[in-house]
Amino acid sequence: MTWVFTSKKRFYLHDDETLLDGLLRTGHDINYQCREGYCGSCRVTLSHASFPVTYAEPPLAMIEQGEILACCCKVKGLIHLKEVK
């Protein structure tokens, strides 16, 4: 089970739920468009993760160190995100 902590709340991801879907389900205000890692609109800043964040396919959108794409990243364990409203 993956637990997600933001400045707004904490929640867990359902089986096979993306981080983006979990954020939307719990009322977070997050931008998104493509849902496939092309545009980078869903970019969030990772504060801490108990396991490395991975991707099934490398995303095409450019991300900086410490950023992840909520639509297509693979997360597990505990993760803390910065500044997600």
Rank of each mutant, 00 (worst) to 15 (best):
8 K>H: 06
60 L>C: 02
59 P>A: 01
15 D>E: 14
43 R>W: 03
71 C>F: 01
48 H>P: 03
83 E>P: 04
78 L>V: 15
50 S>F: 09
81 L>H: 11
3 W>P: 03
44 V>I: 08
2 T>A: 08
75 V>W: 15
80 H>I: 15
47 S>H: 04
17 E>S: 11
56 A>D: 03
45 T>K: 06
27 G>R: 03
66 G>D: 07
17 E>K: 12
41 S>K: 01
50 S>Q: 03
55 Y>G: 03
2 T>I: 09
29 D>G: 08
75 V>M: 15
56 A>T: 04
8 K>L: 07
29 D>T: 07
33 Q>M: 00
46 L>I: 14
66 G>L: 05
11 F>H: 11
11 F>S: 10
31 N>L: 02
38 Y>R: 02
19 L>M: 15
77 G>L: 08
36 E>V: 05
73 C>S: 11
7 S>A: 04
5 F>K: 06
52 P>N: 10
51 F>R: 13
41 S>C: 02
45 T>H: 08
72 C>R: 01
54 T>R: 10
82 K>F: 12
83 E>C: 07
36 E>F: 02
78 L>H: 15
6 T>H: 14
79 I>P: 15
15 D>G: 09
8 K>C: 09
65 Q>A: 05
4 V>M: 13
64 E>I: 00
34 C>L: 12
65 Q>L: 05
30 I>D: 14
10 R>Y: 09
85 K>H: 07
28 H>M: 07
4 V>R: 12
17 E>N: 08
71 C>S: 03
22 G>T: 11
67 E>Y: 03
14 H>W: 06
3 W>D: 09
7 S>I: 05
69 L>A: 05
48 H>M: 06
46 L>N: 14
39 C>Y: 01
25 R>S: 06
56 A>F: 02
32 Y>E: 00
54 T>W: 04
23 L>S: 12
70 A>M: 04
11 F>R: 15
21 D>K: 06
33 Q>D: 00
82 K>L: 08
6 T>M: 12
9 K>F: 05
15 D>A: 15
32 Y>Q: 01
44 V>E: 08
23 L>F: 13
24 L>R: 04
43 R>G: 11
64 E>M: 00
19 L>I: 13
35 R>K: 05
77 G>T: 14
61 A>P: 08
39 C>M: 02
82 K>C: 11
36 E>L: 06
84 V>L: 14
45 T>L: 06
24 L>M: 07
72 C>F: 00
3 W>F: 07
33 Q>A: 00
53 V>H: 13
80 H>F: 12
10 R>D: 13
37 G>Y: 00
78 L>D: 12
70 A>K: 10
30 I>V: 12
60 L>E: 01
49 A>S: 14
49 A>N: 12
50 S>L: 04
82 K>M: 07
10 R>G: 10
48 H>G: 06
8 K>W: 05
8 K>A: 06
57 E>V: 01
46 L>M: 14
48 H>K: 09
41 S>Q: 02
40 G>V: 03
8 K>D: 10
58 P>T: 00
46 L>T: 12
16 D>G: 06
58 P>E: 00
5 F>N: 10
20 L>S: 07
1 M>F: 02
15 D>V: 14
79 I>M: 14
84 V>T: 15
22 G>N: 07
67 E>V: 07
48 H>A: 05
42 C>M: 02
32 Y>V: 00
18 T>E: 07
77 G>A: 04
22 G>D: 08
62 M>N: 15
81 L>A: 14
7 S>V: 07
3 W>M: 08
52 P>T: 08
84 V>Q: 14
